[in-house]
């Protein structure tokens, strides 16, 4: 990552961090309702992957989708309005946190059932391939999805048909509420896809430079039609599975340990250390992001709730 790229990625990460911290507060104040999954601590993957995509590349995410949507370019105000159930939300208040969609920015959607997005991304990749375009489909999923049947069905077909799809697994070591060791004897997701000949690798997802480099290494071949790839990012989910999760299944991370791992702090240390960024410019990223979030909150609050009858009128395309 050069200095400009680093600035862009850092700005995105701060936007996600500030957005999600605010969403956590809004959830507690009941301004955001329903089931909320936060990705605090995992922003680096979203920022480094989406930072190298084009608008016409397609991105799919799952139930933990805020970061991916924002990183792909979804306007923060409309994302927040969606979480607050407002008319100006990305989905007019129909979808909420788990079902964000922003077709305009190539964020084709988040699905709420684990792994359900993977075949969707394959289908988009097939369509892009059939149309002769060099756009790619990218799908984010957690390591829990790897044990679902449709994962293997998808990996086989993606490899067989050499689809332009990048599978990005955010391996946070937990599937829902239990550690990966309770779900599979295979520690690394790359080992699950290796028998199918998928290229890719495993990186420290909290090392944003490493994620960026890995994506830069994989993406050109995927785009050139040489077949799918898997990027496994080892991350750490700082929050519980969902907001309000009693969180008894995870060992707390000490603040010192977290400072070591926090992808934002790490990137800032690295980038100032090697001279890409000036230490003086760092506070600006956070301040800008938090200001933007506050403006988004105010704007979203201004947006009215949707007309209730919209719910039934959208059941079918008329």
């Amino acid at each position: 990552m050069d200095a400009e790229q680093t600035r862009a990625v850092l700005a995105t990460m701060w936007r996600i961090r500030a957005f999600e911290e605010r969403v956590g507060q809004l959830k507690r104040a009941d301004e955001v309702h329903g089931l909320i999954h936060l990705s605090i601590g995992q922003e680096g993957v979203a920022a480094a992957v989406c930072g190298q995509l084009r608008t016409d590349d397609a991105v799919y995410s799952g139930h933990r989708a805020h970061g991916h949507a924002l990183a792909k370019g979804a306007p923060m105000t409309r994302a927040l309005a969606e979480l607050m159930g407002r008319r100006d939300g990305l989905c007019r208040g129909m979808g909420g946190s788990m079902h964000l969609v922003d077709v305009e920015h190539g964020f084709l959607g988040a699905t709420g059932v684990v792994g359900g997005n993977i075949p969707l991304a394959l289908g988009t990749a097939l369509a892009l391939h059939a149309a002769g375009r060099d756009a790619v489909a990218v799908v984010f999923f957690g390591d829990g999805a790897v044990q679902a049947g449709l994962f293997a069905e998808s990996v086989n077909l993606a490899a067989l048909w050499r689809l332009p799809v990048l599978l990005v697994c955010e391996n946070n070591g937990f599937a829902e509420f239990s550690p990966r060791s309770a779900h599979t004897p295979v520690e690394r997701v790359r080992d699950v896809v290796a028998p199918y000949g998928l290229v890719g690798g495993t990186v420290d997802g909290n090392d944003v430079d490493a994620v960026w480099a890995a994506v830069a290494g994989l993406l050109p071949a995927v785009r050139a039609g040489e077949g799918p790839a898997l990027l496994e990012c080892l991350t750490h989910r700082l929050r519980g599975h969902y907001e309000g999760d009693p969180d008894r299944y995870r060992e707390a991370v000490s603040s010192a340990e977290w400072r070591e791992r926090d992808p934002i702090a790490r990137l800032q240390r690295a980038a100032t250390g090697d001279g890409r960024l000036d230490p003086d410019e760092l506070p600006g990223f956070e301040r800008t992001a938090r200001d933007q979030v506050e403006r988004a909150v105010l704007a979203a609050r201004e947006s009215p709730f949707p007309d209730a009858a919209l719910a039934a009128s959208l059941a079918y395309r008329r």
Binding site: G34, G93, A308, A311, A312, L314
Partner: peptide
């Protein structure tokens, strides 16, 4: 329930 999926936003959820 009305013949629609369940919308996220509270007024619509209640409506169906």
């Amino acid at each position: 329930g009305l013949d629609a999926g369940i919308a996220y936003s509270r007024p619509m959820e209640e409506h169906v």
